[in-house]
């Protein structure tokens, strides 16, 4: 029985599952990464994903057009980010407290708007909304093995992959990206070079809001055109954890995100087989994040202690 389960992990279907699970985590990861690069922390990623998910559903229902819904979701994401920027940079509130408050409100506020729209508090099932669906790429589809992976994914997954590349190029190959990284690494040096650090940080927050909103919409708009309370279930935090482990490295960021996705996949496979207790299996991805984050910090601690790395 156990053998069966483990062998199923190496089948293609598992890989496809992982790639599907990875998309929202990747969105959350780059949302956390982009602000961290500029030297601000956005811990409200989870809440922006929730708001984005709901806004996408309500928007596409209201306009009858799913892409308009996406646009509205993006607006909500950017708007929330600007709210954070305003209260933390202009009015001097602690950005961590704002983040905690937003994350806690995300559920009640979204239920509030959900209720206004549908008269229900649990899910938006009563709304018949158009969906984004998936895309088949004709040429690639026929390639053995790779074809199944690369073709037939949801549209937002392709958007995610494209964004990963575009973001990489922007951060490491363009002047804007270099200035952003300068703001995060040594804001004083950036200022003496004539860079407007505040403006760049606000910009990074807006990008973060957009990415997070997309992550949320992935959950609600793909084929299960549905918003339900608590549907983000920690994916935003996985993104923040991935950024924490990555410690500035884009490669590590993606790897960590994929790692968490693998554990989500594992937990789904295990839960389907009913060999392991279903509740514990559900907790596996969270345990994975906890585990790797702790290990990563212990390693940093030991390295600093042994004098190999200078304390920042």
């Amino acid at each position: 029985m156990l053998g069966n389960i483990f062998s199923s992990l190496f089948k293609l279907t598992f890989l496809l599952t992982v790639l599907r699970m990875a998309t929202p985590i990747l969105f959350a990861s780059i949302a956390a990464f982009v602000t961290a690069s500029a030297g601000v922390a956005n811990i409200a990623v989870e809440s922006i994903m929730t708001f984005g998910a709901l806004a996408g559903i309500l928007g596409s229902y209201a306009t009858g057009n799913v892409w308009a819904g996406v646009a509205i979701g993006l607006l909500v994401g950017a708007g929330t980010a600007l709210l954070i920027a305003f209260f933390s940079m202009r009015l001097g509130a602690d950005p961590i407290l704002i983040g905690i408050a937003l994350n806690t409100f995300a559920d009640s506020l979204s239920i509030f708007f959900l209720y206004l729209a549908t008269g229900e508090k649990g899910t938006s099932a009563s709304l018949l909304t158009p969906t984004l669906g998936s895309v088949d790429i004709p040429g690639i589809k026929s390639i053995p093995v790779l074809g199944e992976i690369l073709s037939g994914q949801y549209i937002l997954t392709y958007v995610c992959w494209i964004l990963l590349i575009v973001l990489f190029i922007m951060i490491y190959k363009t002047p804007l990206g270099m200035r952003m990284r300068a703001c995060g690494l040594n804001a004083d040096a950036a200022r003496t070079a004539g860079i407007n650090v505040g403006r760049i940080r606000v910009f990074s927050l807006v990008l973060s809001g957009l990415f997070a909103a997309l992550g949320g919409m992935y959950l609600s708009l793909n084929s299960i055109h549905l918003f339900s309370k608590g549907m983000v279930s920690g994916l935003g935090w996985m993104g923040i954890a991935a950024n924490g482990i990555a410690n500035g490295s884009y490669g590590m960021l993606l790897l960590s995100a994929l790692l968490f996705a693998v554990f989500r996949g594992i937990s789904i496979v295990f839960s389907q087989s009913a060999v392991f207790p279903v509740d514990l299996v559900r907790a596996v991805p969270y345990f994975a994040v906890f585990f790797f984050l702790t290990i990563s910090s212990i390693i940093s601690y030991l390295r600093i202690k042994s004098g190999k790395v200078e304390e920042q």
Binding site: T174, A182, L185, A193
Partner: peptide, 24 residues
């Protein structure tokens, strides 16, 4: 006013980067 993880070139051109289209 230097950024240790950047190369010398990047530190020098920061704020006044030579461009090729949208790229550095």
């Amino acid at each position: 006013m230097l950024i240790p993880s950047f190369s010398i070139v990047d530190n020098i051109i920061l704020g006044d980067e030579p461009k090729n289209g949208i790229f550095i």
